[in-house]
């Protein structure tokens, strides 16, 4: 059965692998210059372009779900070849397990190669911009592997249930991005206990300040509090009252005033060193989703499909 699954998939796998190898080679070749001679804070030219690969990396799981997952079973049901495949001396459970295993293995290997090399390539940028924030988190580390497995399983199940390739592809894309977005906004902030730090208002007011404990972290919420610890809305007016200063006096003076008067900022965040633990938990979460969807596939193919 492995032979058939591979025979059906090998052309797509080879094409995608060639693309992935190309990307990896370009990243490896440009990495040295990037880390020595370029100012990573303001990427230019080719590096600006290469940074966009991160956006591509967000699309890889969606591609896997729509183009590998959705047609995996739907195309067989559409063309009737499931009646050929399921009447050989192999149960449809084995058939499904083998197909998912072959496509899943290629998915994991290619996604992991792309993501991990890109993560390494991005370190000079990430040292400055951070990588735990929502902009970068999903383009780094092992999370894309979890996303891709989830998308593949989602596509397979939707293809099995909807029985038509194109609707399954569309539903997979929509479903994938909805789940991905909901997890990013509603779930990920709570996957690990957030930290709360108190910091000066320097950064908020635009004064050149020392880097604080929050630097590089993923800020979940921030609020300004006054000397009494009460939350302050309208910091400008509050400072104007406290020091008789206005915005016209320049950020450094205002910041100094804020420090003197006891104003500060309370920040809830996931610190930068939560990056890998958070990656592990999020990856596990999506692998869990994938496992549940695969389970649903097996149930459906035994009881509902024909």
């Amino acid at each position: 059965m492995t032979w058939l699954a591979w025979r059906q998939f090998r052309a797509q796998a080879a094409l995608t692998a060639a693309l992935a190898v190309g990307v990896v080679v370009v990243l490896v070749m440009t990495r040295h210059d990037l880390s020595t001679s370029i100012s990573p804070g303001a990427p230019t030219g080719i590096y600006k372009l290469l940074r966009l690969l991160g956006t591509g990396l967000i699309g890889v799981p969606a591609f896997v779900g729509a183009f590998w997952g959705a047609p995996l079973i739907a195309r067989e049901l559409e063309t009737g070849t499931h009646r050929l495949a399921w009447t050989q001396s192999v149960t449809r459970g084995t058939w499904l397990r083998t197909k998912l295993a072959v496509v899943g293995a290629v998915t994991v290997v290619l996604t992991a190669a792309f993501s991990l090399v890109f993560t390494w390539w991005s370190i000079p940028y990430d040292n400055i911009d951070g990588r735990i924030g929502t902009a970068n988190f999903g383009q780094r580390g092992i999370a894309p592997i979890g996303y891709a497995c989830f998308a593949l399983a989602l596509g397979a199940l939707l293809g099995l249930v909807l029985r038509r390739t194109i609707p399954a592809m569309v539903a997979t894309l929509v479903g994938f991005f909805v789940v991905r977005y909901l997890v990013q906004t509603l779930v990920r902030p709570h996957l690990l206990p957030a930290e709360t730090v108190t910091r000066s208002l320097d950064a908020l007011l635009g004064a050149p300040g020392r880097s604080s404990a929050a630097s590089g972290g993923w800020i979940l919420s921030r609020s300004t509090v006054g000397p009494t610890g009460a939350r302050v809305n309208g910091i400008d007016q509050a400072l104007a009252r406290a020091c008789k200063l206005t915005r016209a006096d320049g950020p450094s003076q205002i910041a100094a005033c804020a420090r003197r008067a006891g104003f500060h900022e309370i920040v809830k965040l996931q610190p930068a060193d939560h990056f890998w633990p958070l990656q592990a938990v999020e990856t596990a979460l999506f692998l869990g989703f994938a496992a549940a969807l695969v389970g649903a596939c097996f149930w459906w193919i035994r009881h509902r499909a024909a």
Binding site: Q8, T79, G80, T81, R83, L84, T87
Partner: peptide
């Protein structure tokens, strides 16, 4: 059991 489905599906 050998089975030839209607319309003889092949890949």
């Amino acid at each position: 059991v050998g089975f030839l489905a209607q319309d003889a599906p092949v890949y």
